[in-house]
Design a protein around this nucleic acid. Structure first.
Length: 478
RNA sequence: CGCGGAGUAGAGAAAUGGUAUCUCGAGAGGCUCAUAACCUCUAGAAGUUGGUUCGAUUCCAACCUCCGCAACCA
């Protein structure tokens, strides 16, 4: 039995889910379903990142406690996961007491091994970014991303993580594992970054200034910086550092581990987190899949331009599987992609309404009429596109099968044969039902609801009463 | 010379040192099982300038444009 561990990045809960989250989550879900379908035992983790200055500020603004605020947000994210049919096995929350204890245990382990030290320093800190800023990053003495916000001068003792000591080991990790980061150009990017030299960084904050964090073990005056805490969730989900580490042993130590993230998270996951694992004496992640970003109309999405894509609105209008289809087929695996309502509508009509939906109807209608049932299920030939994160290629393969069926129907014209040679028509339909079966098995991890509907229709041997993908008007308001 | 990515028909992608492929869209024809669906055909493309080569979209160099990152973000 193979064991496969998969995790999304935990979104920071200072806002609602946007299309980037939807893409990462949906793809992770496709992989989880794919690997389950291959017979692997899968542990699929997702959740929410709930500590830090921005969240504390937001709670004050809303006049609620931080815990009440993150509870509310976490529920929103769980709803989002339900909306997009996430088959997760565990929902991590970084304010969970078990997670906090594990984050402390990881801290202790890094500390015991000599990779955490205390240092006093002064720095400029942007509350908007929740980051210290170097002078080179500032524009006119202000943070370029938050020009309205005054920078705070921080003069304090913090704990530092000895990141710089991991340069050689990280480079070894990258060199020895050519698919550690997928795609390869991101591996190149992180290699260049690490080769350029690493600086130790602060991993704690004074509690009196920022209390919304995990307490630093053995120091009541400090809490952990949100990154140290959040990254730990990848193993806290598996119960590492608790009495029962069996899932950690099974999935992290002995299984294959995959983390999904956007390109903005490359450093955190492929360098910082790996160094943390090394510092604690734990095995590294096996693979990190790094996605591109989505732009709309050629521009970065922003509320002021009004080109923000709301994935849930698409789900409501076109249906969940239409969105999952678009994500798998038309959002580029690793490059940035343009997502417009025009493109979405086009591909919905062409490939789902006129493609898959129509094919199901014409095949099952004839099968019904000519009384052909599929008695022998054909063997599906497994492909490894999804194992290699090639969503686009897998979808093209499946839609080629759909096109081939349409072609076959035109060429063989069973609807004509049926008039004077029924057995010949029935033979054609047996083949078509077999192909439809293969197509349906192939889309199962991508479009699980549609898979179920086609499965039922094939069992009844009747075309679905409701169209799988109804013909819809173009809706520019999405 | 901070790092990385991308420039291929109207749109999105792919492959390739030798006829540039696919999907969508457009135009024409065909078909009638099907959700006015399906099939065929047609038109339509390599950022610029050099270099290597018998031959370059592909390899090399320079340049231009766009995007992202630059210790917040999927």
């Amino acid at each position: 039995m193979n064991h496969f561990y998969l995790t999304t990045t935990l979104p920071y809960v200072n806002g609602a889910a946007h299309v980037g989250h939807a893409i990462e989550f949906m793809r992770a879900d496709m992989l989880a379903r794919y690997h389950r379908g291959l017979g692997s035992q899968v542990f699929f983790n997702t959740g929410t990142d709930e500590h830090g200055q921005k969240i504390a500020d937001k709670a004050i603004e809303l006049k609620v406690s931080p815990q009440a605020y993150v509870d509310d947000m976490a529920n929103g994210w769980k709803q989002f996961c339900a909306d997009i049919n996430m088959s997760y096995d565990f929902f991590s929350r970084t304010t969970d007491t078990k997670h906090e204890a594990i984050a402390q245990e990881l801290w202790r382990r890094c500390d015991d091994n000599g990779y955490i030290y205390k240092k006093s320093y002064q720095s400029k800190y942007c509350v908007g970014c929740e980051l210290q800023k170097t002078d080179s990053e500032l524009v006119d003495g202000m943070c370029p991303d938050h020009p309205g916000k005054e920078l705070e001068l921080i003069d304090e003792e913090n704990y530092f993580f000895a990141f710089s000591q991991f340069q050689e080991r990280l480079l070894e990790l990258y060199k020895n594992n050519p698919t550690f980061v997928v795609p390869d150009f991101r591996l190149q990017e992180i290699t260049n970054f690490v080769a350029g030299g690493l600086q130790d960084f602060s991993i704690s904050r004074l509690k009196e200034k920022m209390s919304w964090g995990v307490p630093v073990p053995g120091d009541d005056d400090q809490v952990m910086y949100v990154w140290f805490d959040a990254l730990t969730n990848y193993i806290s989900a598996l119960g590492w550092g608790t009495e029962d580490q069996s899932q950690f042993d099974t999935f992290w130590d002995q299984g294959h581990t995959v983390q999904m993230c956007g390109k903005d998270n490359l450093r955190q996951q492929s360098a910082i987190w790996q160094a943390m694992l090394m510092a604690a004496g734990l095995p590294n992640t096996n693979q990190i899949f790094v996605e591109g970003h989505v732009v709309s109309g050629g521009q970065k999405m922003s509320k002021s331009i009004g080109n923000v894509i709301d994935p849930v609105a698409y789900v409501h209008y076109y249906g969940l599987d239409a969105v999952r289809y678009f994500v798998a087929r038309h959002v580029h695996d690793v490059q940035d992609s343009d997502w417009t309502v025009e493109r979405f509508h086009e591909s919905y009509m062409a490939s789902l309404v006129n493609g898959l939906g129509n094919l199901v109807n014409r095949v099952l209608n004839m099968a019904d009429k000519y009384e052909v049932v599929l008695d022998v299920m054909p063997q599906t030939e497994p492909t490894d596109h999804l194992a290699n994160f090639q969503f686009n290629a897998e979808m093209d393969r499946i839609w080629k099968l759909i096109g081939d069926c349409d072609q076959y129907i035109t060429d063989e014209a069973p609807f004509k044969k049926a008039k004077d040679d029924l057995p010949a028509a029935q033979e054609d339909l047996r083949y078509l039902l077999g192909q439809l079966w293969i197509i349906n098995e192939s889309i199962a991890p991508i479009m699980p609801e549609t898979y179920g509907k086609i499965r039922v229709a094939m069992e009844l041997n009747k075309k679905p009463e409701e169209p799988l993908f109804p013909r819809l008007d173009f809706n520019a308001d999405l």
